Computed example of a mutant assay.
Amino acid sequence: MTVISSNLGASSLVPTFTDCLRSPLTKAHIHTLQINLGKRCNLACSHCHVEAGPKRTEELTEEVCQQLIQLIQKHPEIQVIDLTGGAPEMLYGFRPLVEAARQANKTVIVRSNLTIYFEPGFEDLPEYCADKQVRIVASLPCYLSDNVDKMRGHGVYDASIRALQKLTELGYGSQPQLVLDLVYNPPLPTQEKQFRLTPNQISLEQDYKTFLQEKFSIQFNHLLTITNLPIGRTGQFLKRQDLYGKYLQFLSDHFNSETVEGLMCRHQLSVDYQGQIYDCDFNQMAEVPALNQQGNPLTVANLLASDRLDLISTIQTRDYCYGCTAGSGSSCGGALL
């Protein structure tokens, strides 16, 4: 057992995530390369674990972009290229990576905030994504306007609805090659009694579909429910409310061992804008690098030099990993169970 530091607001003992697992978490077959293109974004959402925003300048370099293209071309076992940010569409390397991946017949995911479509110079993004058959995973933390604007900023809901209507017109949500998924995140709690696991994904998806179709004629494919992990702005918010330790204990109390087999970190490599490798996007933001069997951090250049993806045996875990294993589980693909 370990005590979560009192300055984080804990009131009792919380077992470490390693104690709960009882054995090391290991990598399985790698099929997904998730690339964070940087931290620049046109929004600064209150729950953003990346801490992205308009004033951030970090983004992919040309050298790392070319290395990633080589990696995509050399490894047919990589089936999915998952592009995130920041707002990935506004960052260097977005279109070259989309095009290299599609030429290699890989699925491309872009994690979009939707409002980027209305920024100068990015108005063609919906048509571009449709032409390249990019799967869009879009944040819409509620189907009601007040909740969305509280988390993401005034006017974001209306812009998101207009963007979704545009995507629907292009065939997203109805044509099989144009997949549009929405992401639900719970509201950030301001008191302990507001702690919640994500709702049942199937049931909530139907609520979203009914509301958005009837009110706005919007179609989409799937709803993905994702738990707020206590890192980045979410972690900072919880600390200001003196809830960090209590929230972590809430997540640990709902640890579900059945979720471990399907954890996203087991089948993916996460890459940052500098070409450094992590086990998942959350570890990337917490600056916990993936380690090879000799205990050394890895880069894209290392993967290219070795001509292998399976250089990692043990996944690096921290106590915020409880967020991915609580209840029905949580991943970039939604609920695990």
Rank of each mutant, 00 (worst) to 15 (best):
Q201P: 01
T225F: 00
C280G: 06
P297F: 09
N200H: 02
A138Y: 01
V137T: 07
M285W: 06
A44L: 05
M285E: 13
V300E: 07
F255E: 13
G262Q: 14
C280M: 04
V260F: 13
G329E: 09
E214T: 15
S306Y: 07
P96M: 02
N36P: 02
I161R: 01
F250W: 11
G333H: 12
S174C: 09
S23V: 10
L125N: 05
C265Y: 09
L224R: 15
T18S: 11
L13M: 09
D158S: 10
V50P: 00
S331E: 06
P15W: 04
K150H: 03
L182W: 02
Q213V: 04
L178H: 10
P289C: 12
Q294L: 13
Q236A: 14
N113R: 09
L60V: 09
I277A: 02
Q236I: 12
G153D: 05
H154K: 14
Q165L: 03
A159L: 14
D307T: 03
L224T: 04
I226M: 10
V64W: 07
V108S: 08
S11L: 11
N296C: 03
Q206A: 08
L71Q: 15
N292S: 07
E63K: 14
P297R: 06
L180Q: 00
L304P: 05
E127Y: 12
I161T: 02
Q133F: 04
R135A: 06
E205S: 12
K39Q: 05
L251V: 03
Y172T: 00
T314W: 05
Q34S: 12
D319Q: 03
E192G: 02
F118N: 08
L25G: 04
E287V: 14
L60C: 02
L251Q: 12
N228G: 08
I202A: 14
I231S: 11
S12P: 01
Q191C: 15
H254W: 09
K246E: 15
Y273S: 13
K150L: 04
S203K: 11
F195H: 07
L21I: 05
P189W: 10
R266E: 14
G171F: 10
K166L: 10
R233T: 03
Q133M: 04
G275W: 10
Y273Q: 11
K215R: 13
Q213I: 05
R40P: 03
S160I: 00
M264A: 10
T198I: 12
K106M: 08
R102E: 10
D181N: 06
R56L: 03
G333S: 11
Q316R: 13
I226S: 02
P199V: 01
Y172D: 03
P199L: 01
N228K: 01
